[in-house]
Design a protein around this nucleic acid. Structure first.
Lengths: 346, 346
DNA sequence: ACATTTCTAGAAAACGATTCCCAATTAGAT
DNA sequence: ATCTAATTGGGAATCGTTTTCTAGAAATGT
């Protein structure tokens, strides 16, 4: 049989009120003696409060929800890890779901979260459901958009500077004397990350004296299965390409394979910079130069901001946090290895 | 202001009872007309039931909890994806947490889940908290152990056949004429997966006529930072090694690097089979032969069994499900590529 | 026409906490 | 010794559902 607060009260010979107060740390209202008695009884009966009842009455659950779009991508696994860690530290629990970029599913999930009285939501938004987002802002539902911006929605937003990340990548390629740099990306006009990475590409090209007519961008539709094939075809018809900025870690692997299939050499024939520092980047052949995003921190910061909003109810100032990417230089752009540098110096 | 079932009842001119019945699909008890009226009112007011209240009263939440130990490992991200998918299909929501192999954290999380009246739990058990596990079995708390077995705990268990997986890996190496095969693993005596993979190694060795004195196993302690260094040292002092069975995908990457640092060639000098088919396995140089575990299915099946238990309350027969691993042959064991095979045939 | 059965739908009591408000006891002041 | 103020703890309402029990209406049988 489940033990309730009533059982504790009875056994300790006090009222439910008293027990409740003591559980919630309201010691100043009771004698030392009462507190001790109640605490002992709780331990004795191994009483555990029913979070549902508590939530129902207090309308706070200490649970946050997270809507992700692609669990499979290690980037998101890292983000999730950060969010989980923050929750743990701050005494919250985490519900997650996977929208798979489907706006309908996203909406359904968000509504489910709300029905469960989740205290707030971290969303990697599909960016399509603007009406839904606006409704949430209107009703002051604590919410953080993670990794993506959505125009016109005034809510907390934690992102990585994608323009800068892309700029660094392309700038690095151009400094390594590459003359024909292409940017390869998934096609998705709704999502700010893609837009910004292309913008960074353009900015870097312009900064190096290229004109916009010289921009070269390959956009791949996710649905089209054979990504490697598309890349091979592209490279065949653009034989002058000597540098690739890949905006997505899954695509990067296909690019590397495509280049090998064409029996070209990295970096001698084509240099590559990939987006996202993955577990495997430094183990590829050659090790991959990447733009590292602080994925775990992204998740952690988002959760912290959300929870702070929940606890302080401050909706006056939506926070816009921009984390900084980092260029990890490896051989895929022609970097010499550490030992060689040393030898040369010597 | 929040809309409750009472508001709907009032507006529709019926009682809360009626509304509740209709929400829960009890149409046969009401006239067509009443049903329609209530349904319309629900839509009109955009009424959304409070899951907390519902859960409190009915003591079913339609939420399951999942305790993972390492979100960062892509294997688990895939498992999680499967679990999430099953939840979605079956109308459940998912709470997750990350024990990080810490038994105390595991216990704390499981208790939190229970306080939240989660309907059941999927656990990747640290395997240390036997008392806790037993308590859960005793109180018939729906539970599934995933990926690991724990001796003496009578509960649902979904695993992959690790003995077989390891056997296939080592058998493959030996058939490729490797004479000195070592198994490299993390040291963890509590966890069935490690034990079984070593058992599979031994079985394969025995099957190929080796005696137990010829077994060669390198166990690495997770805490010791420099894994690559340990492997290099090991390979230096065991120069006859010509085949490696790596029981963990993170270690595999270090092994590959170690071998390259030693300027040895894969597979000519040392052949490798790795555990877990990761995104990057086929993109390594050379592409890696692996044992593929049906990770997503593992997660999915676990959730399904759990939810079925919840819905049917059948604790009589704990299910033991063993999924099958698969050998994915690539060049790291000396497999010729498909095209070469074709050329030779020709 | 009246008795009996079947439908339909409502009143009210849970579920297990929190919390407002009030009563009783004690302490302090005069 | 009496009155007021402060402390301590309890009664009961409440959160938003579900569900049992029951009553009235309608339908059926005689």
């Amino acid at each position: 049989m489940k033990i309730t607060i009533g059982d504790v009260a009875q056994k300790a010979g006090v009222s439910k009120t008293t027990v409740s107060r003591i559980i919630n740390g309201n010691y100043n209202n009771n004698t030392e003696e009462t507190v001790q008695k109640v605490l002992d009884t709780i331990k004795e009966l191994d009483y555990r409060p029913n979070a549902l009842a508590k939530g129902l009455k207090s309308s706070r659950t200490n649970v946050i929800g997270m809507v992700l779009s692609n669990l499979k991508n290690p980037f998101w696994a890292n983000v999730l890890e950060g969010t989980e860690e923050a929750c743990q530290e701050l005494g919250f629990n985490l519900m997650i779901c996977n929208s798979g970029e489907d706006p309908e599913l996203e909406e359904q999930y968000i509504k489910e979260f709300q029905m469960r009285q989740v205290d707030g939501i971290v969303i990697n938004p599909t960016a399509i459901n603007t009406k839904l987002y606006n409704d949430l802002v209107m009703e002051e539902y604590p919410m953080v958009f993670i990794n993506r911006k959505v125009d016109g929605i005034e809510t907390h937003n934690v992102v990585v500077d994608n323009i800068k990340g892309a700029f660094m990548a392309v700038d690095h390629l151009l400094k390594k004397n590459r003359k024909n740099v292409v940017s390869i990306a998934y096609k998705n006009k709704y999502v700010s990350t893609w837009r910004e990475r292309l913008e960074g590409y353009r900015a870097a090209m312009l900064a190096h004296g290229y004109s916009s007519s010289e921009f070269n961008i390959l956009e791949i539709e996710r649905e089209k299965g054979n990504i490697k094939g598309i890349i091979i075809d592209f490279l065949k018809s653009n034989p002058s390409i000597d540098g690739i900025f890949s905006t997505n870690n899954m695509i990067t692997l296909e690019i590397v394979d495509a280049i090998k299939d064409l029996e070209l050499k990295i970096p001698e024939d084509i240099a590559i910079v990939g987006y996202d520092e993955t577990i495997w980047a430094k183990h590829l052949d050659p090790p991959l130069t990447t733009i590292k995003q602080p994925a775990k921190e992204l998740g952690k910061v988002s959760a912290k901001i959300l929870i702070e909003t929940i606890q302080n109810n401050n909706f006056d100032k939506p926070q816009k946090i921009i984390l900084q990417p980092e260029l990890i230089i490896r051989k895929s752009c022609g970097a010499t290895s550490a030992s060689v540098v040393w030898a040369v110096k010597k």
